[in-house]
């Protein structure tokens, strides 16, 4: 899987790494048990501070997306995240409400937003199968 980093983006680099890996799991390009490069290797490849990569990995581990094993390396943990749908709704309920609020103030039609989300689901599941 390819990870794209935009140094000029407002989104911090560690969040870009995190987002990419989550999208990779959702689309099925990263599967349960897949290896990830070590913090040092990824840091030297992107050309960013090791703390940045470490921060992304720690965050992903605390969110349950990956598992860091001291000797063997870092692995994708796609299955365990599947169980935590309730956590997700709690975590992003507020964020989603802000997005919906903005959509309402801009007079974005409910159906359009639904369609957009459906499209994203299709896209991720499409690459999976």
């Amino acid at each position: 899987m390819l990870l794209q980093i935009d140094f000029a983006s407002d989104r911090p680099i560690y969040m870009q790494i995190r987002d990419s890996i989550v999208t990779g799991i959702a689309s099925g390009t990263l599967k349960d048990g897949d290896s990830l490069p070590s913090v040092r290797t990824l840091g030297t490849e992107i050309g960013v501070n090791l703390h940045t990569v470490n921060k992304a990995y720690q965050l992903l581990q605390s969110e349950g997306f990956i598992e860091i094993q001291r000797r063997r390396g870092t692995f994708i943990k796609a299955d365990s995240t599947a169980k935590n749908a309730a956590d997700f709704l709690e975590k992003y309920g507020k964020t989603l409400k802000i997005i919906v609020s903005e959509a309402v103030t801009r007079r974005v039609d409910r159906a359009v937003l639904h369609q957009m989300i459906d499209h994203m689901y299709d896209e991720l599941e499409g690459t999976k199968s």
């Binding site: 899987m1 390819l2 794209q4 980093i5 140094f7 990779g24 990263l30 897949d34 290896s35 990830l36």
Partner: peptide, 8 residues
Amino acid sequence: NKMIVELG
């Protein structure tokens, strides 16, 4: 400011 690396 664009960098693409292989992850898997």
